[in-house]
Design a protein around this nucleic acid. Structure first.
Lengths: 176, 176
DNA sequence: GGACACATGTAAGAGGTTACATGATTCG
DNA sequence: CGAATCATGTAACCTCTTACATGTGTCC
């Protein structure tokens, strides 16, 4: 039940249309959540129906023409409640370490190239985040500290992957 | 499409029943994948139907009595192919950093206690993994290097969370 | 035989992915 | 007006979660 809250947060930061939200999910929200446009449109419909957001007045048909949403008081309250609501960490599900383990059983053929490919992808993501940090959070800061904290999380998580993949490649190429 | 491959790996390491698999998923497989017993029984059925595994001969009804599975040649081949198959990293979805970001918009009420709770959970998980490492991988090793690598991944990932949560708590308690 | 752990299974529904459908706007 | 892009939406399907159902073996 996190997608609706991710959307509420994004809409509070700035009222937007579905496609704009989709793009923002690809960027900053995407540090820790992702969603396709199909998911977002469906969820916007549900949120509107439950009275947590509303579409800004506009004319024209529903298909094809832009529709902007803003958060209502009930939506802000729901989001504030969610921040404090106890919710356990999600179980982890990442196929890559699983594949490394499988390689230990059935052989390492083809593993190294996949590890290299993933390493490059994570390095690129890390570089992107670091560029964002340099641009948006220069110098000892005063504001937006929580948003910076989330970005640091993204950076540190990508750093973890890069380092783990480097070690994995050492192991696989060194002895395989 | 990773659950079937996780099961194939586990069954190759040791032929097992559904419940035994469930327990092993809670332990070592669980470093990077989790699954409920419902998922596992369903997937075992599918894998058997596709001819990748088979149930070891036994008598008795299907409900209530133990049923062990082993991997067939086709299953081993499928797993080896999966190790080498290009597959992009999964999009990240973690609600906790999202909640931190939401707190930046609607206020930090109740956030610190959730962060503390998660910090304790991750510290406990980290301690558990480190105990496993001390027990199963003492001294400069010779074998099981890939499995150790996966465990190190689990340890480093938990370490990331612990450090990020400590920083987050500093931020939230220090100024909030 | 009652309680309890062991063990397998069914069903409904939410969340996510993939593929496709359709209208509006802009630019050459 | 044709093509590309912007923009919203539908449908089918798969995975995962939650709740429940049912049978077996053991110990008292």
């Amino acid at each position: 039940m996190s997608l609706p809250h991710a959307i509420l947060t994004a809409l509070l930061e700035k009222p937007s249309s579905g496609l704009e939200l989709t793009r923002r999910f690809d960027k900053s929200i995407g540090y820790f959540w992702s969603a396709s446009h199909q998911q977002i449109y469906r969820e916007l419909g549900r949120l509107e129906e439950s009275g947590l957001i509303r579409a800004l007045p506009s004319q024209g048909p529903s298909r094809g023409s832009k529709k902007e949403y803003e958060v209502l008081a009930a939506g802000r309250e729901e989001l504030a409640a969610w921040v404090a609501r106890p919710e356990d960490p999600r179980p982890i599900r990442d196929p890559l370490p699983l594949r490394v383990r499988a390689a230990g059983v059935v052989g390492r053929e083809g593993l190294a190239s996949e590890l290299r490919r993933h390493l490059e992808l994570h390095r690129a993501q890390l570089a992107e985040y670091e560029a964002i940090e340099a641009r948006d959070f220069p110098a000892p800061e005063t504001a937006d500290r929580l948003q910076h904290l989330v970005l640091r999380g993204g950076i540190d998580l990508e750093t973890f992957w890069v380092e783990w993949l480097e070690r994995a490649l050492d192991e696989v190429e060194g002895s395989g």
